[in-house]
């Protein structure tokens, strides 16, 4: 199920190492390539370097050695302006949604257009009509367009995460990064968010990198699984062949109940989702 190997990689790590100023080595000589449209789940214990790995793609973290190529461009060497242009094409979703709480949902989603507009326009808050429509359409695609004019902090966690997805979509990205996107959500909502991510990734042919701790979710949604331990890639392969033993090898310990999110029956998730929409 791994995407066609013929197409050139959209994201490529070449011998990437990241050592933090305090001496902690988060990534050790990592080399990976991700082709267009692949839905990759990165698993590992906390502290294994998952978060650092995906943050190297949009350079929220700058590697200490090696190169990260995005569409053939080495992002590690970009200047400020070029980096912002590169980031415009990379959407990102966070564990705690990271919305601007006091702004409206629509404002939050429109923030995805900032890098595309001249600064004077954004400072005055003058978004082109097309961008507003794009933002509303993004909200529609995650099913919460009716909340557009509400303040972001009036929404539930699952709704906020969908706003964050809409914000990323509004960037019209080629790459989607998600850092523990469901860690703060209850099981039905978590599955709903993962289904949304997977569906949008398919529809837009997005190269998607998702950090997850839960092995059952990784198995359920991933095309390909990358396992990290202590900053090194210890597993890389299609999701089909992965078993509990694989995860035990990646984690270096036995699987525990808290490594599983728990399966939410589709009906239950849909019901919860419907309830959330009705609210």
């Amino acid at each position: 199920m791994a995407a066609a190997p013929a197409s050139p990689p959209v994201v490529a790590f070449e011998n990437v190492t990241k050592q933090f100023p305090n001496g902690h080595v988060a990534l050790r000589n990592v080399s990976l390539t991700f082709p267009r449209g692949e839905f990759v789940v990165v698993v590992g214990l906390s502290g294994a370097g998952k978060s650092t790995l995906i943050r190297c793609v949009n350079r929220l973290v700058t590697p200490t050695a090696g190169r990260v190529l995005v569409d053939g461009v080495d992002v590690t060497s970009l200047g400020d302006a070029a980096l912002r242009r590169a980031r415009a094409g990379i959407g990102m979703i966070f564990q705690n949604y990271n919305l601007v709480r006091r702004s409206s949902v629509l404002r939050n989603v429109l923030a995805g257009r900032l890098a595309y507009l001249p600064t004077w326009r954004t400072l005055l808050g003058l978004f082109p009509r097309a961008d507003v429509e794009l933002a509303l359409r993004s909200l529609e695609r995650v099913g919460i367009v009716e909340k557009a004019y509400q303040r972001a902090d009036t929404l539930s966690g699952g709704q906020q995460q969908r706003v964050a997805i809409a914000r990323a979509l509004t960037q019209r990205p080629a790459i989607l990064l998600a850092d523990e996107p469901v860690a703060s959500l209850d099981p039905p909502t978590a599955h709903q968010v993962m289904r949304d991510l997977k569906r949008l990734s398919r529809e837009e042919n997005l190269t998607t990198l998702v950090n997850l701790h839960f092995i059952d979710m990784a198995q359920e949604y991933a095309d390909r699984i990358v396992g990290l331990r202590a900053g090194e890639v210890v597993f890389d392969g299609p999701a089909e062949g992965v078993t509990e033993q694989t995860f035990e090898a990646i984690y270096g310990r036995r699987i525990r109940p808290d490594d599983l999110r728990g399966a939410a029956a589709d009906e239950a998730a849909a019901a919860a989702d419907g309830a959330a929409l009705a609210r």
């Binding site: 242009r85 980031r87 990271n98 601007v100 400072l123």
Partner: peptide, 21 residues
């Protein structure tokens, strides 16, 4: 919250835009 600012710069916003939004 620093994280919400990080999200904006991750989408390519300039420092001035991060401040504004």
């Amino acid at each position: 919250d620093r994280a919400s600012l990080e999200a904006l710069s991750a989408s390519g916003a300039s420092p001035l835009e991060v401040f504004r939004y």
